[in-house]
Amino acid sequence: MRNKFADVFYELGRDDPKLCIVVADISPAGSIGKFRTEFPQRFINTGVAEQIMIGMCAGMAQRGLRPFAYTIATFTLYRPFEFVRDDLCYQELPVTIVGIGGGVTYSTLGGTHHAQEDIGVATAIPNMSVIAPCDPAEAEMATRWCATQTRGPVYLRLGKAGEPVLTDKAADPWRFGKLRYIERGEDVCILAYGPIMGLAVEIADRFRQRGDSVSIVSAHTVKPLDEEGIVDALRRHGRMVVIEETAPIGSLGPRIKAIAYDAGARCRVDSFSLRDEFIHHYGSHAELLAAHGLDAARIGHALGLS
């Protein structure tokens, strides 16, 4: 996902002299290295200094440039939080802050490197848009949108590397602010965002094996949320399952339940997220997710599929 971001950023940055990338001492992935070599003035490394990474991006945007801040999600969002809030969101500047390794992607690095509350934190700030692509193809669409949008700050939450493409046969195109049906069905709607979509696809298969007709939906734009689209999905399906790799408080699941309640929807909604705890587990990403209760067996069992 980060390599796709890098490829697209390089391609766009070649043509748009206003595109800049400001990193805080992170080695540039893939084509960002090429961008650095060819356009050294538009690749800025602040060193281990994240507050100034965000502050500089704000000042650059105020004087006509289009900067992206780029580092691990904990360090683009948490460390400089008040700079994100005041400099970017309060001033409503079109700066994209790229968070690599959203959720618990960095499963061997410990809790200091887990952005497990990033969705709640980022969506809580007025004016902030939050985009979490589910695969490299969506990461490409999102990056293209971020590079030309003028509405304000964006938290672009990416995974790491090696995520499979899940949307090559998607029913809908990618559109900012709209739910995207990857597959359309009638009985069950599985809704997810980010790389955990892979697990959502597995759960969809379980439902299909049981004979259900299943929709798979990418809620890539977590904010602003497509509330109309959610209500429509709640009305069209008898059951909705929300799977997300983020802390439960401030997550999408409770919001969808609130929307369902307000709309008087009869659709049953089950939601699965990370636990509200720091889990001291070191292993693969899938193992850490499982420790939080997010694997096909546990979710399948909770949904009565086993």
Partner: peptide
Amino acid sequence: MGLATGMALAERLQ
């Protein structure tokens, strides 16, 4: 200081 540094850089780059 961060805002001004970003602004000063943007002026130079443009």
